[in-house]
Computed example of a mutant assay.
Amino acid sequence: MAEIVASRNDATTSLVAGLERAGSTAALVSASAVGYYGSTPAGGEPLTEESPPAKDDFLADLCVGWEAAANAYGGRVVITRLGVVLGAGGGALAKMLPAFKVFAGGPVGSGDQVVSWVSLEDVVDVLITAAGSSDYRGVYNLTAESPVTMKEMAGALGRALKRPSWAPVPGVALTALYGEGARVVLEGQRVLPGRLGSGGWVWRYGEIDDVMTHVAEQV
């Protein structure tokens, strides 16, 4: 756990110190994660940038410290709280694709938990835009506007790959692999990109079937 914290906090603190020493006026665009909010109970209200961090939660505490390290910078700071990033080259789908390719894919856990996702391409677009535009500052939830259940996400991947989606991954297996990090995946989060949405951001991939079709074309 200490190594995970240090990899975020210490690296960001060192970057900020370097920028300050150099007298930089550049913007600092820092990653964080929707783990800041903890999980969303079934039927719970959506989480926005105004929602408080979860209490007694490792991922939430990690994000709070990470963001504090970035906000120590004296220039313009943009914090992006990333959802589950979907792309062909890694991340969540890298762990799901092999099973789907051999006709053994399915949802993780119950399948009823909500996934707040975002395409890799939209992440890149937002980061580049935020770095170059002084209109961007403060916290932005970097998720698509249409969260889905894990079952819906797995179904969309199955349709795109023309594979079944019937073999769920037991939650106990995920907990064994990721410990505390599995909690949000198994319990779910309904996070909305309130500030990006109100600012008129246009998503490349706003629907889960669109992004899964795009991913299937690359694998």
Rank of each mutant, 00 (worst) to 15 (best):
M1T: 13
M1C: 05
E3I: 10
I4T: 13
R8L: 01
E20M: 07
R21F: 03
G23Q: 09
A27D: 03
S32Y: 01
V34Y: 01
V34E: 01
G38H: 04
G38E: 01
E45G: 11
A70D: 03
A72R: 15
Y73Q: 00
Y73H: 10
T80L: 15
V84K: 00
V84L: 05
G89M: 09
M96G: 06
K101P: 02
V102F: 14
A104R: 15
V108D: 02
V108P: 02
G109H: 08
S110G: 09
S110R: 09
G111F: 08
V114H: 03
V114M: 11
W117I: 07
S119R: 12
V123P: 03
D125T: 14
V126A: 12
S133W: 03
S133Y: 06
D135F: 05
Y136R: 11
V139C: 06
N141R: 12
L142P: 00
M153N: 03
G155N: 06
G155T: 01
A156V: 06
R159W: 06
R159N: 13
G171A: 13
G171R: 13
L174D: 05
Y178A: 15
G179Q: 09
E180Q: 15
G181E: 04
A182K: 08
V184F: 03
V185F: 02
L186S: 13
L192K: 06
R195L: 05
G197A: 13
S198V: 11
W201S: 11
Y205I: 05
G206P: 09
D209E: 14
T213N: 10
H214Q: 13
E217C: 10
V219T: 08
